[in-house]
């Protein structure tokens, strides 16, 4: 027993010794991003590499705000990401539920089509999507165009379908025998039991929207409708690149996501691994 625990401890130390440098390598760019966000422009490009933060964060932020309206852009990003997450979770959950719980003609075809869309690279879709939304529907420069077109998420549908498929269907049959309507079974039994999966999916979808650059860049040309990543991108000009502003913006976009991920990590891991083991 004693030798086993000491062997385990040795294995733990070896594992940590191997992982620690990897963690440092992973964290180094993040740290440097933070350091750069606190340096003046000449500090970022000094001959010596500065590894410790300075005191120019507020100045850099003011520069960022005056150049891009970063607060407004972040507000739009939050609004878009929240609405997108809510609507996409609702949509993918309902689609997953119907694919998991009902028998209907053409179900296999629907499932295969959803699976098939996974094989299409986004860059194949984005131009036709842009033409349809901007030219045919005339919806460019609207919140609707930012939120709705990317709503359907086939990976999310398959994830939720798997989650609902693994639930004991006797629970739903029991409710049916009790005369509970199908949408209430979904809302009051299926969805609460899928909470870890919903939490994990919400984080993934929120991050997806938060980091989305290409679609908001294409669909919105007005500065007033820019999302935060697009606002940051606009700092990269032909003649001048405001690195201090970009790094400050990057820190401000990354920090809340890190906090969110750490806070919801338990749900995230539980959701991803749900059903993997009994």
């Amino acid at each position: 027993m004693r030798s086993k625990s000491s062997a385990e401890r040795r294995r733990g130390i070896a594992l940590h010794a191997a992982l620690f440098p990897l963690a440092l390598i992973w964290l180094f760019p993040l740290w440097m991003m933070f350091v750069f966000s606190t340096l003046p422009e000449n500090g970022i490009f000094s001959r010596d590499i500065i590894l410790t933060p300075s005191d120019q964060f507020v100045e850099n932020f003011n520069l960022l705000e005056s150049d891009t309206g970063f607060i407004r852009a972040t507000t739009i990003s939050i609004l878009v990401a929240a609405a997108y997450t809510f609507l996409s979770v609702a949509l993918t959950s309902m689609a997953g539920w119907s694919l998991a719980c009902y028998r209907f003609a053409g179900k296999g075809v629907v499932l295969a089509t959803i699976l098939g869309t996974l094989t299409l690279p986004y860059f194949v879709v984005v131009i036709p999507q842009f033409i349809m939304v901007a030219r045919d529907f005339g919806l460019h420069n609207t919140l609707f165009a930012l939120i709705v077109p990317p709503l359907f998420n086939s990976l999310g549908v398959l994830f939720m379908r798997q989650t609902f498929s693994m639930m004991p269907h006797e629970l739903f049959d029991a409710a049916r025998v009790e005369g509970v309507k199908e949408w209430r079974i979904f809302l009051f039994i299926g969805l609460p039991l899928a909470r870890p999966a919903v939490a994990a999916l919400s984080i993934i979808l929120f991050l997806h929207s938060w980091n989305n650059y290409l679609w908001p860049l294409l669909i919105n040309s007005k500065p007033a409708m820019m999302t935060a990543p697009v606002a940051l991108g606009s700092l990269i000009g032909l003649t001048k690149v405001s690195w201090g502003g970009i790094m400050t913006g990057a820190v401000m976009l990354t920090a809340p996501m890190l906090v969110l991920f750490v806070a919801l990590q338990r749900h995230f891991v539980a959701g991803i691994s749900a059903g993997a083991v009994k």
Binding site: A175, E178, G179, V180, K181, R184, F188
Partner: peptide, 8 residues
Amino acid sequence: LSFGLRMN
């Protein structure tokens, strides 16, 4: 026990 009755 009450779920079905409440839902109806």
